[in-house]
Simulated scan of single mutants.
Amino acid sequence: MSKSLTKKEVSEYKTEDKGLYIIVDDGVYDVTKFIDEHPGGAKILKRMAGKDSTKQFWKYHGKNVLEKYGPKLKVGTVKEEAKL
């Protein structure tokens, strides 16, 4: 089930105990169980947890990576926040 999260809510998921979430484009992905499989190592995922990782993701990955892993890791989308 997909849920809508604010960037602030995603920022709370930055520890392995609570979960490691990253944002890519408008998707929110739980990479907690993927850290040991990540070819680039766990360190970068832990460093980017709770943040918008779009720029860094597309710098090192092609569209095929998100197509392959995205469906099983995606937990929701980023909710638009009102700008004051």
Rank of each mutant, 00 (worst) to 15 (best):
D52K: 04
G40Y: 06
V28G: 01
L84G: 15
K43V: 09
K74M: 02
G41V: 07
Q56R: 12
D36Y: 09
L66S: 07
G40V: 13
K63G: 04
Y69K: 12
Y13I: 00
A49P: 04
Q56W: 09
V10W: 00
G62F: 04
E16W: 04
G40L: 07
E80G: 07
K63F: 00
V31K: 00
A49S: 10
D25I: 04
T6V: 03
Y21V: 01
L84A: 10
M48F: 14
K55G: 12
I22S: 01
L45Q: 01
F57V: 13
S11K: 02
A42E: 15
H38M: 13
V65A: 15
S2Q: 14
V75Y: 01
V75A: 01
D17T: 11
L73Y: 09
I23L: 08
E9D: 11
G19K: 06
G62S: 09
D26C: 01
G50H: 08
P39H: 13
E67F: 05
K55N: 11
Q56D: 13
E16G: 00
A42V: 01
H61T: 05
G50I: 08
L66I: 15
V24M: 09
G19H: 09
G70T: 03
I35M: 05
F57H: 12
K46C: 04
S2N: 14
D25C: 06
S53K: 02
K79C: 01
L73K: 06
T77G: 10
H61A: 12
G40N: 09
T6Q: 08
E37D: 15
I44Y: 08
T77E: 12
G19S: 09
Y29R: 07
K68P: 02
K72P: 00
M1W: 11
E67P: 09
V31F: 07
P39E: 00
V31A: 02
Y21R: 00
